[in-house]
Amino acid sequence: MKGLFVSPSPHRSSNASTARIMLMVIISLVPAAAAGCVFFGPRAALVLAMCIACCIIFEALCRIVMKREQTVGDLSAVVTGLLLGMNLPATVPFYIPVIGSFVAIVVIKQLFGGIGQNFANPAIAARIVLMLSFTGQMSGWVKPYWYTSVVDAETSATPLAASWLNYTENGAAYKMAPFTLSEMFFGETGGCIGETCAAALIVGGLFLIFTKIISPATPLAFIGSFALLTLLYTGSAVETVYGVLAGGLLIGAFFMATDYATTPLTMWGKIIFGIGCGLITFIIRSFGSYPEGVSFSILLMNLLTPYIDRLTKTLPLGAKKPVKGGNA
């Protein structure tokens, strides 16, 4: 009998695929995105939809123009679009999602070779470009349920920008947080569409950890190091928990600092990456002129990833001398 199919072993493959992994990430982001749509209304849903649509279109166009195989089916552009949208305030003008998607997909992802080749997280880089270029448009924070109000939209400071109320009672000085921890946990605060609902983000993050899509090392190291530094610096457990729940820390730690392409490969690499992110976020939030530092911390650590990979190569079983140096 001839005409047999011949190939090198193994002759089995797992049912894992890039598209399946991306689909799991999308599912894990749905609770937080849905919470954002409930708090910030139809306009939030529209911004998310625009980001996803623009990312898909830019991805498909890039592949056509570059005469490369079409990769839009791997759903990675959907993940980028969703993450980008979740990192925008609901009130952004509609050219913002277009520009953001262009930066994320065309500049950051495709010009560097497409999926797996980008040096920085596309959604993070796009958010930073938008924040620096369109600071006003990117700061249109509104209160949750603003869309149900008959009067003009009420603006609201984000948990990180709002100031704590200082007061004294019986001679002792107290500080009161602008939002209660319950409001922070369930996301009834001002902020980007997808970053406010901590509960939904934790559910999504745990889903990714339990389905082994992401390793718990990065989120634990990131949140843990940030919380420890904040606790040491402020000496206040309330302020620490507040800081963890506020801003983009959870969405960053679970969904953006765990991006495969731009973070280290090994467990120790992931831990170093997470600690670096926690440290930089703490420094920017506590001493910098920006209220938020998560995006910058992840971007900076993205740049260090090749070096971290080089330092944290695994030691092969029985290898005679430790493996050092070389190109990661």
Binding site: I21, I115, Y260, A261, T314
Partner: peptide, 10 residues
């Protein structure tokens, strides 16, 4: 398809 650096091989 393209490597996504997921680290499963490692």
């Amino acid at each position: 398809t393209a490597c996504i650096r997921c680290g499963r091989c490692v």
